[in-house]
Design a protein around this nucleic acid. Structure first.
Lengths: 237, 237
DNA sequence: GCCTGTCTGTGTGTTGACGCACATACAGGG
DNA sequence: CCCTGTATGTGCGTCAACACACAGACAGGC
């Protein structure tokens, strides 16, 4: 098993693909490739982060956990970003949990290395900041969508956001887990998913969901999805 | 009328109060004090920002405007922060509007100056980033609160967030405007506000609201308020 | 004092999501 | 093949927030 990152693998993460050759050369020996299983927690709310993560095929969900145990997703990170921005933003911790939503591969790098490279102030520095701004847009749009849109629309948004970060059309995820992500009831997801299946946009059996018709999903989504998508392209495209 | 900032006035903004003496000396000649009337728009969604703002007594609301015209607040900025983080984050614009929620004073500074000082990489650089992380927490918590909590709880949260940034106990704001901020109906605010008035926590007449009992409001708020408050203190206290 | 515009209060009916209960269906191990 | 655990489907009553309609109530200008 390889314990060192190849340039070829690393650039599957969009942020690593955008840094300069010099920077990537410095980063590569410190990027450790690992596989993340569904449900693994990368860090807990308020917990110091030892590593930052650059996913390639894995998807990580940023979840807030209420005192009464209910949860709500505030953002999602795939090969378009990184997990652990609090390291270079200066806070070191955040009041939310990072959990693997879809199993896959990622690179991890020690926090100290992250800070060192960030403070060099090169292109890497700027890319991290622009990514952070894109993430802010995603979180903002989540707030707006939670306030103003139906569960149906939000499920479409969530599926599209996931699909964008997925290497295939298959999503291994029970309706119960999706409900936790969106902060709604499981039955609400059952209803919405059935409608989408009847429309022929998706199919699923027991936690194995396939996206059949992306265009169909896009017809059912609210404007929130496109706003986030456009902003990511503008900032990092 | 003074057109140059005094050190004494500037440090009423918490971020300016936290920078080094050297940095503040460089910033002061570029900080222009102005008064902002209720409702003034500092920048529109997608519009290039010419200035950044450091409020002292004014409060600015960050609003998202839907295609159908409905609105929702994603964050609020007072003397604890600044408006225009997209300038140093690298995006230059954001997909939301900044509008004066409570009339008052602020300093404005040209974007170029902001970028210059930020790229020097001193304490100012770090403070801006830590503030950005605090703002992310506020936006995240807004998302969670929108999903899981009642209008009553959210009104309490909103009043407390405003009160924290206000030099007095009076808030000039109609129920209609508050409804737009929270992204709910005006009647919903009427109901919630009446309950708070009956409990003796607030009093109001035609757009003039007074906070009578802060502790009372805190008893009706959800955990979201304290999470944000604690995180601001941790990052910037 | 009157008029007008704005702000707040209230009623009625509707709806989307919730909580709870339980039925059905499928998968994998023994 | 049966058993068990997990995943999904469905019904029912409840409730918070919605849309719409309109009634006071107050402020400021004429």
């Amino acid at each position: 098993m390889a314990t060192e990152a190849t340039r070829e693998e690393a650039v599957k993460n969009h942020l690593l693909a955008a840094v300069s050759d010099d920077e990537l050369s410095r980063l590569l020996p410190n990027l450790q490739p690992i596989s993340l299983p569904l449900g693994q927690v990368l860090y807990e709310s308020g917990e110091t982060m030892d590593y930052v993560y650059f996913p390639t095929t894995a998807i990580i969900s940023l979840l807030y956990i209420m005192e009464n145990g209910s949860t709500a997703e505030i953002g999602v990170v795939g090969n378009d970003g990184m997990v652990g921005i609090a390291i270079f933003m200066g806070g070191n911790t955040t009041p939310n949990r990072a959990v693997v939503q879809s199993a896959g591969k990622t690179f991890k790098m020690r926090s100290e290395m992250m800070k060192d490279e960030f403070t060099r102030g090169g292109r890497f520095h700027n890319i991290c900041l622009r990514y952070t701004q894109a993430l802010i847009t995603q979180i903002s749009q989540t707030a707006v969508c939670n306030r103003l849109h139906s569960v149906d629309q939000q499920l479409c948004r969530w599926l599209l956001l996931s699909h964008d970060r997925l290497p295939s059309n298959r999503l291994i995820m029970t309706q119960d887990l999706i409900a936790n992500m969106l902060g709604v009831r499981r039955e609400g997801i059952t209803h919405a998913a059935r409608r989408l299946q009847k429309a022929g946009y998706i199919s699923y059996v027991r936690g194995d969901m396939t996206i059949l018709d992306r265009v169909g999903l896009e017809s059912g989504v609210c404007e929130c999805y496109q706003v986030v998508r456009t902003e990511y392209d503008r900032l990092l495209g």
